[in-house]
Design a protein around this nucleic acid. Structure first.
Length: 278
DNA sequence: CGGCCAACCTGTGCGC
DNA sequence: TGCGCACAGGTTGGCC
């Protein structure tokens, strides 16, 4: 589920529940996700105030007063679920790994069946130099992500453009879905060698990536109501993908008679129009 | 360093 | 109904 737009949607969902709020109880039910959860995680955070819920690429950052910054990543299957204090909390489920209970009675649950997610601490003075974040490239919507930058970073690359755009060191926040969608909108075949793109193509690609991400965040916003819903279920927004998971369907571009194909690159599916992406 | 693959996990859907 | 397999929105460690 989570690429940058989904993580931003989650951030927006949990910030009103956590910001300015004291954590009364933090329970770690499983000591290790992708990496070990700090042994003092619960003790350090209990009775502390969350000042800010932030995000860097696909990482959620909790800035907590007089405590380390909490770095949280959802991996492939991670969810942050809110159970409002206005109703009795439901029975915990199998993959509810961490529980944050607030002074208001709200409950935030980190649930992650595959456990590719992670939770750890960072030094508030040096969050950006934390090993998980240090070598991360610019985000799609940041000023330092522009055609000059991308062209330079791609120029020496022998690998496919698909792989390059998934490389978080080049651009941080894209995942398999939005790379497929951005390449489709740009008319670029996922197997094109990254270094072979012309500056004109990169000039076109950059705003397309921005648009795709912006639109997805906006659409994700419509999920917010569902996200906060009392029933505790996450109604992840139904994306309007043009190629992702649409193998065999016809291309949505007017006048294009192409068909959406699926290939595997670096062990991951790529979807593309076999006629209009070159 | 660049590039590729396996590995980390569980769940789901599909063909037989 | 059950079994086995393919596949899933991410990242990293190890090997050429």
């Amino acid at each position: 589920m989570p690429e940058l737009p989904e993580v931003e949607t989650v951030r927006r969902g949990i910030s009103p529940v956590l910001e300015g709020v004291t954590l009364k109880d933090v329970i770690v039910r499983r000591p290790k996700l992708r990496i070990e959860i700090p042994k003092d995680f619960s003790r350090v955070l209990t009775n502390k105030v969350v000042e800010k819920v932030s995000r860097k690429s696909k990482y959620i950052l909790l800035y907590v007063k007089d405590a380390p910054v909490v770095i949280l990543h959802l991996g492939m299957s991670g969810k942050l679920l809110i159970h409002p204090g206005t109703k009795p909390h439901p029975v915990l489920e199998k993959h509810d790994h961490i529980i944050f209970d607030t002074e208001r009675g709200d409950r935030l649950i980190f649930n992650d069946p595959r456990r590719f997610g992670l939770v750890t601490f960072a030094n508030p003075e040096a969050v950006d130099s934390h090993p998980l974040l240090a070598s991360m490239g610019p985000e799609p919507l940041a000023n330092d992500f522009n055609a000059d930058y991308l062209f330079k970073r791609l120029s020496s690359r022998k690998s496919a453009i698909k792989a390059a755009l998934l490389d978080q060191k080049i651009i941080a926040g894209l995942g398999n879905i939005y790379v497929c969608e951005a390449l489709f909108r740009s008319g670029i075949h996922p197997e094109r060698q990254a270094g072979s793109l012309s500056i004109e193509q990169v000039n076109q690609l950059v705003p397309v990536i921005r648009d795709v991400i912006r639109e997805a965040i906006e659409a994700g916003g419509s999920t917010l109501k569902d996200y906060a819903k009392v029933d505790g279920t996450l109604g992840y927004f139904q994306h309007q993908f043009q190629v992702y998971d649409r193998a065999g369907e016809s291309c949505s571009i007017m006048g294009c008679s192409g068909v959406i194909g699926r290939i595997t690159q670096q062990g991951r599916s790529s979807y593309f129009c076999n006629a209009c992406q070159k």
